[in-house]
Each structure stands twice: as C-alpha cells, then as structure tokens.
Computed example of a mutant assay.
Amino acid sequence: MRKALVIVSALLLVAFAVQFVLAAVGGFTRPAGEDAYALHSLNGMAVIPILTVLTALFAALAKAPGRLIALAILPIGLVVLQPLIAMLAEASTDASGVSTPLGLTIGGLHALNGIIAVHVVVGVHRGARKLAGPVPADAGVAVRETEPA
C-alpha cells in the first residue's frame, strides 16, 4: 500500500501540473468560447478529485501517520472549493456580463487555491516517499551469488 500511495500521489501531482497547462490553454484559446476551459474543467472535476480521494484512501490503508493522512485529505476540501470560487467569480460581473474588479480578485483566489493544493500534494508525496522507505542501491539489479572457489 505504501508504494501505491507514492504512485497515486505522484499521479496527482502530474494531474495538477496538467491542470495549470489546461488553464493556460483556455486562457489563450481564440476566439474564447464556452468550451475554452472544457479540458481544464474535465481534469479538475473528474481526474483530480478521483486521484485526491485515492491518495487519501491509500494513505489510510498504508497506515500512514495521522498527520500524513490529514494532509492527504486536505486537498479534497481545496478541490471542492475550486468550482465554488470560479462560480462566485463568474457571478461577480456587472449587468452587461463584463468582469468587475471584485470578480477578477475572486478569480485570482481560484489560482491561489490551486497553488496551495499543489503545495499540499507535494507534502503528501514527500511524506509518502519517506513512509515507503529508501530505495536500495541495488534495486532492480539481479545479483548472482557464486560459491567460493
């Protein structure tokens, strides 16, 4: 279970890195239509939540220390918060649908929350690697013992 925790937490880090790339794709898509952020939404509302729950589950199954389990659970709340922040930012437009300073500030919190979530997942991954123990120097190398002559 400890190796599974290392693997799934690494996959979660990759998914977060991809999420930032997909946000940039949405931001640079021209013309910016309704589907500019479709991949960002799919990754953020399906892949990342699934990997986040799996990370927390594997931390518990690996009998990780309570602090590491709590750290693994924390991104679930941060991930749930993300679409709420985005909806609040979208709702903070003026009557003609133009962004307001308040809406833009709230939108910035969406990015900040994502950065915090990544930071937490880095801590989880480091803790998972430490829990799994050091990799032996001869890992993956078959050593054949011979009898003394």
Rank of each mutant, 00 (worst) to 15 (best):
L11V: 08
L12K: 11
V14N: 02
F16W: 12
A17S: 04
A17G: 15
V18A: 15
Q19T: 03
F20C: 01
V21C: 05
V21M: 13
V21E: 11
A24S: 09
V25P: 04
G27M: 12
F28N: 03
T29H: 06
R30G: 00
R30E: 13
P31S: 13
A32H: 09
G33N: 00
G33P: 02
L39V: 11
H40Q: 05
S41M: 10
S41C: 00
L42E: 03
G44Q: 01
I50T: 13
L54Y: 04
T55D: 08
A59M: 08
A60V: 11
A60Q: 09
A60N: 02
A62C: 08
P65F: 06
P65W: 01
I69N: 00
A70I: 03
I73Q: 06
L74G: 04
I76G: 00
G77T: 05
G77L: 04
L78F: 07
L78N: 13
Q82S: 14
P83I: 10
P83E: 08
I85R: 05
L88I: 02
A89E: 01
A91V: 01
A91N: 12
S92L: 14
T93W: 00
T93C: 08
G97Y: 02
S99G: 09
T100H: 07
L104N: 12
T105R: 06
I106E: 00
L112S: 07
N113L: 03
I116L: 14
V120P: 03
V121R: 10
V121Y: 02
V122W: 10
V122L: 15
R126H: 08
R126S: 07
A128Y: 08
A132M: 04
V135D: 10
G140R: 08
G140S: 11
R144N: 04
R144F: 07
T146F: 13
